[in-house]
Protein backbone atom coordinates (compact mmCIF):
# COMPACT_ATOMS: atom_id res chain seq x y z
CA UNK A 1 0.00 0.00 0.00
CA UNK A 2 2.75 2.38 0.94
CA UNK A 3 4.78 1.21 -2.00
CA UNK A 4 2.02 2.24 -4.34
CA UNK A 5 1.97 5.72 -2.91
CA UNK A 6 5.71 6.06 -3.29
CA UNK A 7 5.57 4.98 -6.90
CA UNK A 8 2.76 7.30 -7.82
CA UNK A 9 4.39 10.28 -6.16
CA UNK A 10 7.66 9.48 -7.87
CA UNK A 11 5.91 9.28 -11.21
CA UNK A 12 4.28 12.62 -10.56
CA UNK A 13 7.60 14.21 -9.66
CA UNK A 14 9.23 12.82 -12.76
CA UNK A 15 6.46 14.04 -15.03
CA UNK A 16 6.66 17.50 -13.55
CA UNK A 17 10.41 17.60 -13.91
CA UNK A 18 10.32 16.62 -17.56
CA UNK A 19 7.52 19.00 -18.34
CA UNK A 20 9.18 21.81 -16.43
CA UNK A 21 12.41 21.38 -18.27
CA UNK A 22 10.68 21.40 -21.62
CA UNK A 23 9.02 24.63 -20.75
CA UNK A 24 11.99 26.40 -19.18
CA UNK A 25 14.91 25.43 -21.42
CA UNK A 26 15.14 27.02 -24.87
CA UNK A 27 15.30 24.87 -27.98
CA UNK A 28 18.81 23.49 -28.56
CA UNK A 29 19.97 23.84 -32.14
CA UNK A 30 22.87 21.68 -33.26
CA UNK A 31 25.10 23.58 -35.62
CA UNK A 32 27.86 21.98 -37.68
CA UNK A 33 31.04 23.76 -38.66
CA UNK A 34 34.26 22.68 -40.33
CA UNK A 35 36.73 24.23 -37.92
CA UNK A 36 39.67 24.23 -40.32
CA UNK A 37 38.99 27.58 -41.89
CA UNK A 38 40.64 30.34 -39.90
CA UNK A 39 39.70 32.93 -38.94
CA UNK A 40 36.07 32.08 -39.60
CA UNK A 41 36.01 28.79 -37.72
CA UNK A 42 38.90 26.97 -36.14
CA UNK A 43 39.99 25.08 -33.07
CA UNK A 44 42.06 27.10 -30.62
CA UNK A 45 44.86 25.96 -28.33
CA UNK A 46 42.29 24.97 -25.70
CA UNK A 47 40.42 22.77 -28.16
CA UNK A 48 37.49 25.17 -28.30
CA UNK A 49 35.84 25.96 -31.59
CA UNK A 50 36.27 29.69 -32.11
CA UNK A 51 36.09 32.24 -34.89
CA UNK A 52 33.90 34.88 -36.44
CA UNK A 53 31.17 32.44 -37.43
CA UNK A 54 31.08 30.97 -33.95
CA UNK A 55 30.68 34.31 -32.23
CA UNK A 56 28.14 35.37 -34.82
CA UNK A 57 26.09 32.21 -34.40
CA UNK A 58 26.08 32.62 -30.63
CA UNK A 59 24.80 36.16 -31.02
CA UNK A 60 22.12 35.04 -33.48
CA UNK A 61 21.03 32.32 -31.08
CA UNK A 62 20.76 34.77 -28.25
CA UNK A 63 18.66 37.15 -30.29
CA UNK A 64 16.64 34.36 -31.84
CA UNK A 65 15.88 32.81 -28.48
CA UNK A 66 17.44 29.41 -28.83
CA UNK A 67 20.48 27.60 -27.51
CA UNK A 68 23.27 26.45 -29.76
CA UNK A 69 25.57 23.48 -29.66
CA UNK A 70 28.49 23.29 -32.10
CA UNK A 71 29.63 20.17 -33.84
CA UNK A 72 32.98 20.03 -35.64
CA UNK A 73 32.38 18.28 -38.92
CA UNK A 74 34.48 17.62 -42.03
CA UNK A 75 33.53 19.93 -44.88
CA UNK A 76 33.32 17.05 -47.30
CA UNK A 77 29.90 15.73 -46.42
CA UNK A 78 28.85 18.57 -44.13
CA UNK A 79 25.74 19.10 -46.29
CA UNK A 80 24.86 15.43 -46.20
CA UNK A 81 24.76 15.66 -42.39
CA UNK A 82 22.16 18.39 -42.33
CA UNK A 83 20.12 16.46 -44.85
CA UNK A 84 20.17 13.30 -42.74
CA UNK A 85 19.39 15.21 -39.55
CA UNK A 86 22.66 14.70 -37.70
CA UNK A 87 22.52 18.41 -36.95
CA UNK A 88 20.05 21.21 -37.64
CA UNK A 89 22.14 23.90 -39.27
CA UNK A 90 25.56 24.75 -40.74
CA UNK A 91 27.58 27.87 -40.16
CA UNK A 92 30.87 27.35 -41.91
CA UNK A 93 31.57 30.22 -44.31
CA UNK A 94 29.03 28.71 -46.65
CA UNK A 95 28.67 30.81 -49.78
CA UNK A 96 25.08 31.11 -50.97
CA UNK A 97 24.96 29.61 -54.47
CA UNK A 98 22.09 28.69 -56.74
CA UNK A 99 23.14 25.06 -56.81
CA UNK A 100 23.14 24.83 -53.03
CA UNK A 101 19.85 26.71 -52.74
CA UNK A 102 18.18 24.01 -54.80
CA UNK A 103 19.05 21.45 -52.16
CA UNK A 104 19.10 23.40 -48.91
CA UNK A 105 17.57 26.49 -47.38
CA UNK A 106 19.78 29.47 -46.61
CA UNK A 107 19.34 32.24 -44.08
CA UNK A 108 19.72 35.89 -45.01
CA UNK A 109 23.30 36.63 -46.06
CA UNK A 110 25.35 37.67 -43.04
CA UNK A 111 28.79 38.48 -44.46
CA UNK A 112 30.28 39.42 -47.81
CA UNK A 113 33.29 37.48 -49.01
CA UNK A 114 35.25 36.60 -52.11
CA UNK A 115 37.74 34.11 -53.48
CA UNK A 116 41.38 35.08 -53.73
CA UNK A 117 44.51 33.45 -55.12
CA UNK A 118 47.60 32.67 -53.03
CA UNK A 119 50.84 31.70 -54.80
CA UNK A 120 54.47 31.08 -53.88
CA UNK A 121 56.55 34.25 -53.52
CA UNK A 122 58.37 33.91 -56.84
CA UNK A 123 55.25 33.41 -58.97
CA UNK A 124 54.70 36.09 -61.63
CA UNK A 125 51.15 35.24 -62.68
CA UNK A 126 48.72 38.08 -62.03
CA UNK A 127 45.58 35.98 -61.97
CA UNK A 128 44.25 32.47 -61.85
CA UNK A 129 43.91 32.09 -65.63
CA UNK A 130 47.63 32.67 -66.04
CA UNK A 131 48.47 29.52 -64.09
CA UNK A 132 47.74 27.38 -67.15
CA UNK A 133 49.49 24.02 -67.03
CA UNK A 134 49.82 24.15 -63.27
CA UNK A 135 47.92 22.53 -60.46
CA UNK A 136 45.94 24.80 -58.18
CA UNK A 137 44.59 23.61 -54.87
CA UNK A 138 41.34 24.34 -53.09
CA UNK A 139 39.22 22.71 -50.44
CA UNK A 140 36.95 20.05 -51.85
CA UNK A 141 33.42 21.27 -52.64
CA UNK A 142 34.12 24.95 -51.98
CA UNK A 143 33.36 27.88 -54.25
CA UNK A 144 37.15 28.24 -54.53
CA UNK A 145 37.34 24.80 -56.11
CA UNK A 146 34.49 25.66 -58.46
CA UNK A 147 36.31 28.83 -59.53
CA UNK A 148 39.51 26.93 -60.34
CA UNK A 149 37.54 24.46 -62.44
CA UNK A 150 36.21 27.30 -64.58
CA UNK A 151 39.72 27.99 -65.89
CA UNK A 152 40.57 25.70 -68.77
CA UNK A 153 44.11 24.37 -68.57
CA UNK A 154 44.42 24.91 -64.84
CA UNK A 155 44.29 21.58 -63.05
CA UNK A 156 42.26 21.53 -59.85
CA UNK A 157 43.53 19.57 -56.91
CA UNK A 158 41.08 19.22 -54.06
CA UNK A 159 41.96 18.90 -50.40
CA UNK A 160 40.00 17.87 -47.33
CA UNK A 161 41.31 20.90 -45.49
CA UNK A 162 42.68 24.09 -46.94
CA UNK A 163 45.69 23.87 -44.61
CA UNK A 164 46.82 20.72 -46.40
CA UNK A 165 46.72 22.58 -49.70
CA UNK A 166 49.05 25.24 -48.33
CA UNK A 167 51.38 22.53 -47.02
CA UNK A 168 51.42 20.91 -50.46
CA UNK A 169 52.28 24.28 -51.96
CA UNK A 170 55.32 24.40 -49.66
CA UNK A 171 56.28 20.99 -51.05
CA UNK A 172 56.01 22.36 -54.58
CA UNK A 173 53.26 19.98 -55.59
CA UNK A 174 50.85 22.79 -56.53
CA UNK A 175 51.35 26.29 -57.92
CA UNK A 176 48.54 28.11 -56.16
CA UNK A 177 45.69 27.93 -53.68
CA UNK A 178 42.27 29.54 -54.00
CA UNK A 179 40.22 30.18 -50.87
CA UNK A 180 38.14 32.83 -49.10
CA UNK A 181 39.95 36.10 -48.57
CA UNK A 182 40.03 36.08 -44.73
CA UNK A 183 41.49 32.58 -44.76
CA UNK A 184 44.05 33.54 -47.40
CA UNK A 185 45.16 36.43 -45.23
CA UNK A 186 45.75 34.08 -42.30
CA UNK A 187 47.84 31.62 -44.30
CA UNK A 188 49.71 34.01 -46.57
CA UNK A 189 50.33 36.88 -44.23
CA UNK A 190 49.80 35.92 -40.61
CA UNK A 191 51.24 32.42 -40.22
CA UNK A 192 54.89 32.68 -39.34
CA UNK A 193 55.98 29.53 -41.21
CA UNK A 194 54.30 30.64 -44.44
CA UNK A 195 54.63 34.42 -44.43
CA UNK A 196 58.00 34.39 -46.21
CA UNK A 197 56.88 31.74 -48.72
CA UNK A 198 53.52 32.93 -50.04
CA UNK A 199 51.88 36.06 -51.37
CA UNK A 200 48.34 37.07 -52.22
CA UNK A 201 47.63 37.89 -55.86
CA UNK A 202 45.54 41.02 -56.35
CA UNK A 203 42.09 41.35 -54.83
CA UNK A 204 39.22 38.95 -54.32
CA UNK A 205 37.86 38.04 -57.75
CA UNK A 206 34.36 36.91 -56.77
CA UNK A 207 31.55 38.55 -54.90
CA UNK A 208 29.92 36.11 -52.53
CA UNK A 209 27.83 36.17 -49.42
CA UNK A 210 27.77 33.68 -46.55
CA UNK A 211 24.57 32.23 -45.23
CA UNK A 212 23.52 29.79 -42.55
CA UNK A 213 22.25 26.47 -43.93
CA UNK A 214 19.22 24.52 -42.70
CA UNK A 215 17.48 21.47 -44.05
CA UNK A 216 15.19 22.15 -46.98
CA UNK A 217 11.78 23.05 -45.59
CA UNK A 218 12.83 23.69 -41.99
CA UNK A 219 10.86 26.99 -41.94
CA UNK A 220 10.59 27.15 -38.18
CA UNK A 221 14.34 27.13 -37.56
CA UNK A 222 15.00 29.38 -40.52
CA UNK A 223 12.60 31.96 -39.12
CA UNK A 224 14.38 31.86 -35.74
CA UNK A 225 17.78 32.26 -37.36
CA UNK A 226 16.68 35.09 -39.65
CA UNK A 227 15.09 36.85 -36.70
CA UNK A 228 18.43 36.54 -34.90
CA UNK A 229 20.47 37.77 -37.85
CA UNK A 230 18.23 40.79 -38.30
CA UNK A 231 18.53 41.65 -34.63
CA UNK A 232 22.31 41.26 -34.57
CA UNK A 233 22.67 43.45 -37.66
CA UNK A 234 20.25 46.03 -36.30
CA UNK A 235 22.21 46.27 -33.08
CA UNK A 236 25.48 46.35 -35.07
CA UNK A 237 26.91 43.58 -32.94
CA UNK A 238 28.83 42.16 -35.88
CA UNK A 239 31.04 45.22 -36.13
CA UNK A 240 32.99 44.23 -33.05
CA UNK A 241 33.30 40.66 -34.30
CA UNK A 242 34.73 41.83 -37.61
CA UNK A 243 37.20 43.97 -35.75
CA UNK A 244 38.22 41.05 -33.61
CA UNK A 245 38.51 38.32 -36.25
CA UNK A 246 38.87 39.84 -39.68
CA UNK A 247 41.44 42.57 -39.20
Amino acid sequence: MKMKQVISSLTLLLTMAVAGQALAAPKVVKVATDATWPPMEMVDANKNIVGFDIDFMKAVAKEGGFAVEFKNSAWDGIFAGVESGQYDAIISSVTITEERQKKYDFSLPYLDAGQILVVPKGEKAGKLAELVGKKVGAQIGTTGAFEVKKNKGVELKTYDEVGLAFEDMVAGRIGGVVCDEPTAIIYALKKKEYADKFKIVGKAFTKEAYGIVVKKGDKELLALINKGIKAVKAKKQDGAMKAQWLK
Binding site: W75, D76, G77, R100, I140, K157, T158, Y159, L164
Partner: peptide, 22 residues
Protein backbone atom coordinates in the same frame (compact mmCIF):
# COMPACT_ATOMS: atom_id res chain seq x y z
CA UNK B 1 42.42 10.30 -51.30
CA UNK B 2 43.11 12.08 -48.02
CA UNK B 3 46.36 13.30 -49.63
CA UNK B 4 44.41 15.07 -52.36
CA UNK B 5 45.54 12.41 -54.82
CA UNK B 6 42.73 12.26 -57.33
CA UNK B 7 41.94 8.55 -57.00
CA UNK B 8 38.59 6.87 -57.39
CA UNK B 9 37.35 7.84 -53.93
CA UNK B 10 38.44 11.46 -54.24
CA UNK B 11 36.84 11.80 -57.63
CA UNK B 12 33.66 10.49 -56.07
CA UNK B 13 33.93 12.89 -53.16
CA UNK B 14 34.50 15.77 -55.54
CA UNK B 15 31.43 14.85 -57.51
CA UNK B 16 29.32 14.41 -54.40
CA UNK B 17 30.44 17.66 -52.80
CA UNK B 18 29.48 19.59 -55.89
CA UNK B 19 26.24 17.85 -56.76
CA UNK B 20 25.21 16.90 -53.19
CA UNK B 21 24.33 13.41 -54.45
CA UNK B 22 26.13 11.71 -51.61
Amino acid sequence: SILAVADLLRRGREFASESFTY
